[in-house]
Design a protein around this nucleic acid. Structure first.
Length: 801
RNA sequence: GCCCAAGUGGUGGAAUUGGUAUACACGCACGACUCAAAAUCGUGUGGCGCAAGUCAUAAGAGUUCGAGUCUCUUCUUGGGCACCA
């Protein structure tokens, strides 16, 4: 028989599957939608880390097919974005050219793996037919008041020359280029994601969502819900008041001052009364110059300036306290103003120490001369609330505030609205026309998509306008409402726009009439399994959930969540333990690995490396190990005989393997599934004959992992139909049972002997044998036997003395 | 600081409800085949000990007949959030 040579069989079967549409039977009753986070096709191509998730979904897809499901497993391209645009800037060519080339290379690489992707459904976010619907969703958001223009200060990357959302930052730096982000006030489009904060939070616990804890926790933290109260503090001898927000209203009797953020409006309103206005203005100016990074730099000393001449009244004690402006209070959160209780808040404590402010203890339990005591406790110095616990006091004081109408219970979120405009070329144009009479007007649906015009220069302008602004032919248009002169919006959408709904497009990729056909949507949604990198936990996955809920509200989709089960891929690190990167010169190219070991070995190895969600280092010698396993299977085929039955041990091991591989695939434990198959093959190899049926069962179980080898050996046994049109072998409990089992004998929990006994042996018999055993008697003779614990099929433990 | 995940041989890891710790694979050593090498096959491979044994799952305590697994304390690593009142 010929040696196993991957090159001779892989292309052949890939072509066969494609020509025969082996995977494309979408008519079965049971449906399974398995999805990879689609890649950004970069210029350099895939390294061996990228396909890990794709292999896992492919194994799952094939497993589900063999179990009678119609499986939707599509692939596409998230193709807007900076690398293509930067390339275009450098070479003065349309980013389309670069994008198309990168896609072709990615697709070529993915095809080497023999994935089950239905390329008829391939999508590309930059395709005008696709953009049309991304823009359509924006228009719907705009119609419902969920897309609005704002002039609030936002994150600005000075190097990318564009505004960014909070989700686009990493440590106060631009996630793309690493530049320190500045705050810049500019006109921008914002999506009102905070309207969905509660649902984004609570639905994480809905039974429609089975996500890993890690990702769920990250989203919960990001949304950052907090429950507290908001109440007014009156400015002494003035009609003005400031609203403050706190989660620790139980400490209200300990207020010794109050603080507003530098951008707080009260400063402007009270400027007549502030005696040190110049000093205050100087402070605000300096604070505005600081970047987010400088503001939050670790353990940075707190700064602030007292507003001289202003006092605010603590509504609980009636006492007046000073007011400060300080940048440790954030303008964008809560009301931008806080009550300060230095005895029970670390930040206030630090500030009060520095500026010699009073520290008044109102919760007992700490030593407030040294540290702020921030735990709950029993109230003191709090009039009628003294002696209550913190939690009781919070309820009672909140009730009081609501009764007296001074304040109310309030929920706040850390999550902000989504800053949605980018001042760059390579993104979906925002479909809005600005008219002097009518203001911002949506482009009528019939005029979608608004496509990108050709420009001379792709360079960002840095002025807050995108390069589109210089194309007057394109910018100048008529207002769809009044017909007078209008100007197109020149900002474009962020890359996250197109990726927020692409999973719907796969279901119905060619439909130009509606965003999605309702019947098809109901057949496939939600996505049953979604796999991708953990770095998307608070970006893509949050945005997509937000859009999906919006689409649910306007009746486009029928589920409240888009992705039922979510798993993150553990990174593959380089052999040296670092991230694979051109910079370290440690990148391994899948073309080379497949060239040397074959696609099936590559697939098996990545699934065998370790637990799927864990990050592991690449090891090329590890690939040779799974390749040896494939070689062994290839040789075991020589032992196959149609007229015999396999040894009982083999049959039992086969059934154990069927069970284990089935369970393990369902639970994404591919590494142990593969080791079980190795155990079986190691045992088969030692036999002289293997029954054909048994070997065929092994091939079916192997097929999801190593489809080319499985298909080749399957057809070599004379089968005409593809192995992927077979049914998964039935696990038979009876056949999996062993006649004889090993029974461990322990004395006081320590293993002293192992006995081979019949599987159905009686407890008394084992006890008797064990107690008579010489090795056991060494430890039991002359001692009193207190009890004997018997675990059927496993252990007998004799407890002495 | 807060939240999440994890810590087991030389290496990646296994042990699914507390029941044989180190499966499977890599690496290494020795042997067979070979003029030789590669490939392949075989044997061995946690530490200490000639052995019977004994000690080992980050460290320490606890529960239990029995703990890698459960509880508490501490340490370390990775990830996320971070002046969010």
């Amino acid at each position: 028989m010929e040696k196993y040579e991957p090159k001779n069989i892989e292309k052949k079967w890939q072509k066969y599957w494609e020509d025969n549409g082996t995977y494309k039977d979408y008519s079965r009753d049971k449906k399974f939608y398995v999805l990879d986070m689609f890649p950004y096709p970069s210029g350099v191509g895939l390294h061996v880390g990228h396909p890990k998730g794709y292999i896992a979904t492919d194994v799952t897809a094939r497993f589900k097919m063999l179990n009678g499901f119609s499986v939707l497993h599509p692939m596409g391209w998230d193709a807007f974005g900076l690398p293509a645009e930067n390339y275009a800037i450098k070479n003065k060519s349309n980013p389309n050219v670069f994008t198309a080339r990168s896609i072709a290379n990615y697709k070529r690489q993915l095809e080497m793996f023999g994935f089950t992707y239905d390329w008829d459904r391939e999508i590309n976010t930059t395709d005008p037919a696709y953009c049309k619907w991304t823009q359509w969703i924006f228009l719907k958001l705009f119609e419902k008041g969920l897309a609005y223009e704002s002039n609030a200060p936002i994150n600005w990357c000075p190097s990318c020359k564009t505004g960014l959302s909070n989700e686009d930052l990493e440590d106060g730096k631009c996630e793309r280029c690493g530049s320190v982000v500045e705050q810049k006030q500019m006109r921008q489009w914002v999506l009102k994601m905070t309207d969905y904060a509660d649902r984004l939070l609570y639905d994480l616990d809905s039974p429609q969502l089975e996500w890993e804890d890690m990702i769920v926790e990250q989203q919960k933290n990001w949304i950052g819900r907090s429950e507290g109260v908001q109440f007014a503090m009156q400015i002494e001898s003035s009609d003005e008041k400031i609203e403050v927000y706190t989660t620790r209203i139980d400490t209200a009797f300990g207020i010794t001052y109050a603080v507003v953020a530098p951008e707080h409006e009260i400063i402007e309103k009270l400027k007549e009364n502030i005696s040190n206005l110049d000093e205050v203005k100087k402070y605000i100016e300096d604070a505005n110059k600081k970047t987010n990074l400088e503001r939050t730099e670790l353990q940075k000393e707190k700064t602030g300036v007292r507003l001289e001449g202003i006092l605010v009244v603590n509504p609980f004690t009636g006492k007046s306290v000073p007011l400060f402006v300080a940048d440790y209070v954030l303008g964008g959160y809560g009301t931008g103003a806080v009550m300060a209780v230095p005895a029970h808040d670390e930040r206030d404590f630090e500030f009060a120490k520095k500026y010699n402010l009073e520290i008044k203890e109102v919760v007992s339990g700490g030593s407030i001369f040294e540290n702020a005591f921030t735990d709950d406790g029993i109230l003191i110095n709090s009039d009628g609330y003294s002696n209550l616990s913190s939690s009781e006091a919070r309820e009672k004081i909140a009730d009081y505030l609501e009764k007296e109408k001074i304040g109310k219970r309030k929920v706040n979120y850390k999550m902000r609205d989504w800053v949605y405009s980018r001042q760059r070329y390579w993104g979906e144009p925002i479909p809005i026309i600005h008219c002097e009479n009518c203001g911002a007007v949506g482009v009528p649906e019939k005029d979608l998509p608004v496509t990108l015009p050709e420009v001379e220069n792709y360079e960002p302008t840095g002025t807050g306008e995108s390069p589109l602004a210089s194309i007057s032919d394109w910018v100048n248009t008529t207002c769809p409402k009044c017909g007078r002169l209008g100007k197109r919006e020149t900002n474009t959408m962020p890359q996250w726009g197109g990726s927020s709904w692409y999973y719907l497009r796969y279901i119905d990729p060619k439909n130009d009439k509606v965003i999605i056909d309702k019947d098809l949507e109901k057949q496939w949604m939600p996505v049953d399994l979604y796999v991708g990198g953990a770095e998307h936990a608070t970006r893509h996955l949050l945005y997509a959930r937000f859009w999906h809920k919006f689409l649910y509200d306007i009746g486009v989709v029928s589920t409240i969540e888009p992705f039922k089960k979510l798993l993150h891929v553990g990174l593959i690190m380089a052999e040296d333990g670092r991230k694979m990167s051109k910079r370290w010169n440690n990148v391994v190219n899948p073309d080379d690995i497949i060239g040397e070991y074959g696609a099936d070995a590559m697939r098996l190895y990545e699934m065998f490396m370790g637990p799927f969600t864990q990050s592991v280092s690449w090891s090329t010698t590890g690939v040779s190990g799974v390749r040896r396993f494939l070689d062994k299977i290839w040789k075991v085929k020589e032992l196959v005989s149609a007229d015999i039955s396999s040894d009982k041990k083999i049959v039992s091991l086969l059934h154990k393997t069927i069970k284990k591989v089935s369970d393990d695939i369902e639970n994404f434990r591919f590494n142990t599934a593969i080791s079980q198959m190795m155990i079986l093959v190691n045992a088969m190899e030692k036999e002289s004959k293997i029954a054909k049926d048994d070997f065929q069962s092994l091939l079916i179980v192997l097929a999801p992992f190593a489809p080319h080898v499985a298909e080749e050996l399957w057809s070599g046994l004379g089968n005409e139909k593809s192995i992927f049109l077979q049914s998964w072998p039935q696990f038979d409990e009876k056949l999996s049972r062993d006649n004889e089992i090993e029974m461990v004998v322990q004395v006081n929990g320590k293993v002293r002997e192992r006995l081979m006994v019949a599987a159905d042996v009686l407890e008394d018999e084992v006890k008797e044998t064990a107690l008579e055993n010489e090795k056991v008697r060494v430890f039991t003779d002359g001692k009193e036997i207190k009890k004997i614990i018997f675990v059927p099929g496993k252990i007998i433990n004799i407890v002495v003395e």
